[in-house]
């Protein structure tokens, strides 16, 4: 079995969100970069578990990004996986990125393609679905449980107010979220081993971009909290009812 896990570089979850160049670019000064948590904790770790259960599994990682993505790719390889492919391109349009991943995925004829449910920077939630459509494969999004059974995938995914169990024959594309696996920390053996794992660099294929990011802005600052005395919590209810008209 061959698995491809898509990983993306994102700012750390505690990074200060600020913008530069007239609010057209994310201000990267002092920002720590991490593997997008959904890609790492859920997609990658679940794929590693599948490889542990069946050591004949081949596990590849793919990233679309510039050379500054290599530290997070090495970190991913330290967690597990046999080799990584970096498609040497910077772009923020999801159709363009999905086109690059689909080209690599087609070439590698994978049985299973995992993505995170979204990146924590652009929150597009779109790469998995786009890759699936480009490859004419079924797609299950927002999965939090994944098992294999006689060539079929049994996947539990989140729906509004509950969950749904899906059965589908491989190959399939799955986007992963919390619940799929437990977060792991790379150990020394993994970190040393990652250095000698292949990290292949390929150039992007020609593909269109359908969107461009114009500018960013931050939510307006709050006016400040109105504190109510703990001796008189009834006053809070009155304020919410009469002033904020919240109920």
């Amino acid at each position: 079995m061959k698995i491809l896990v898509c990983i993306s570089k994102t700012p750390d979850t505690t990074a200060k969100i600020a913008f530069a160049d007239n609010n057209t670019k994310f201000a990267t000064d002092g920002v720590q970069w991490i593997i997008n948590p959904y890609d790492e904790w859920y997609a990658l770790v679940r794929a590693i578990e599948l490889k542990e259960a069946d050591p004949s599994t081949i596990l590849h990682l793919v990233n679309v990004g510039a050379v500054d993505c290599e530290p997070i790719i090495r970190k991913a390889l330290a967690l597990g996986g046999d080799e990584a492919i970096r498609i040497n391109s910077e772009n923020t349009d999801s159709f363009y990125i999905a086109s690059q991943i689909a080209a690599v995925a087609k070439e590698g004829a994978y049985d299973l393609i995992f993505t995170g449910k979204e990146t924590i920077d652009y929150n597009g939630s779109s790469i998995g679905g786009m890759v699936a459509e480009l490859l004419d494969l079924p797609y299950i999004s927002h999965a939090f449980k994944f098992d294999l059974e006689a060539g079929n995938a049994l996947v539990v995914r989140e729906i509004e107010g509950g969950e749904e169990t899906n059965k589908v024959a491989l190959p399939v594309v799955v986007s992963c979220q919390k619940g799929m696996a437990e977060q792991r920390i790379p150990n020394m053996k993994g970190i040393m081993g990652a250095r000698s794992k292949p990290l292949k660099i390929t150039e992007p294929i020609a593909a269109d971009s359908l969107t461009t990011v114009g500018s960013f802005d931050l939510p307006p600052a709050k006016a400040g909290v109105k504190l109510v005395s703990p001796e008189n919590p009834e006053e809070l209810v009155r304020l919410l009812h009469e002033e904020a008209k919240a109920f």
Binding site: D93, S94, F95, A98, K117, N123, G124, S125, S126, I127, G128, G129, M130, A132, E133, L134, Y139, I140, S141, H142, R157, E158, I159, E160, D208, L210, T211
Partner: peptide, 23 residues
Amino acid sequence: NSAAAKAVAPRLSVKLKAGLVSG
């Protein structure tokens, strides 16, 4: 932007070559 949209909109985006803004 529901569970259904998150699964369908990206596919439709590719099928129609339509730029997608989610959320």
